[in-house]
Design a protein around this nucleic acid. Structure first.
Length: 275
DNA sequence: GCCCAGGAGTGCA
DNA sequence: TGCACTCATGGG
């Protein structure tokens, strides 16, 4: 099955390269993207971006295609912040994904004090070790492991996958989720969800915001990492040093668009100079 | 060899 | 509550 969408507001490279997803590889004319236990092939042809998969409904929602990003881009530009304006104009095709909640929890626990290439490698090794081997369009891939499989793997497995000191966080959190599930997290507002997420081992303010934003669709979340800290100082001339206060500052400034703005800023700061 | 990476847990005042 | 210290690991 396949479907297509206006490529101006759906650019695979921008969507995949902006740091919200760790499981994709270049494939033919585009990318093979893995989410939870599913795979799709996404590529641009002319003025259309095309998604091929075995589950169109899943990936239509995954790529957030019911939402109008033209309005989001225009609102971002209207704030008249140079970095934000330039980034939103350059990356009109960026979209926030609606990813699997548990995959986001484990993936962003791994992300703390870590760099993106290494995060990708760790997650790939964990999937290869505990996930199920599948095939899509002749390509092999591994599903993201179930909480059950993760909870039984043991600390040594995570250590061996290169997780470093985060091994115990993954072990403890997967065991907790195995017994509690995550259904009690589903219908909370952003503040309530963040508060709950902060009670898990390995989840602090920044990781909680990423999980809320990418996994639970809380678009008013604004993760503050080292890059955002730098942007706050250099592009907003901010004086605060407490990350929680910097987070409040941006959330109050951008309200319900905070998450989109955060991605434009983060991706723009990392890549605009190199274009 | 040093610094940094999509930070967070712990101990101590 | 605030703050310094520490935590693996690989790339630049």
């Amino acid at each position: 099955m396949k479907f297509d969408y206006d490529a101006q507001y759906f650019n695979p490279e921008q969507v995949l390269d902006c740091g919200q997803i760790f499981r994709f590889t270049p494939f033919k004319e585009g990318y093979l993207v893995i989410s939870a236990d599913k795979a799709c092939y996404v590529y641009t042809e002319g003025n259309k971006t095309i998604v091929e998969s075995d589950d169109s409904d899943y990936f239509y929602n995954y790529f957030d295609l019911a939402r109008d990003y033209k309005e989001i881009v225009e609102r971002a530009i209207s704030h008249n912040v140079p970095l934000l304006t330039k980034s939103a104009q350059t990356f009109k095709g960026l979209r926030l994904l609606n990813q699997n909640k548990e995959e986001m929890i484990y993936s962003f626990i791994i992300s703390q004090n870590n760099n993106i290439p290494r995060i990708k490698g760790i997650i790939n090794r964990i999937c290869a070790g505990l996930g199920e081997r599948r095939e899509f369009l002749g390509e092999e891939y591994y599903t993201f492991p179930s909480t059950s499989a993760l909870s039984q793997a043991g600390v040594a497995f995570f250590k061996n996958a290169g997780c470093g000191y985060r091994d115990v966080f993954l072990d403890e959190t997967s065991k907790r989720i195995l017994t509690e599930g995550i259904s009690h997290l589903e219908n909370l507002n952003s503040a309530q969800l963040k508060k709950e997420l902060l009670t898990y081992k390995g989840i602090g303010p920044k990781v909680a915001d990423c999980i809320a934003l990418f996994g639970f669709g809380k678009r008013d979340s604004f993760p503050v990492d080292t890059w955002i800290e730098k942007i706050y100082k250099e592009d907003f001339m901010g004086e605060l040093t407490d990350r929680n206060k910097i987070c409040d500052y941006f959330c109050n400034l951008f309200k319900e668009d905070a998450g989109y703005v955060q991605q434009y800023l983060f991706y723009g700061k990392r890549t605009l100079d190199k274009l």
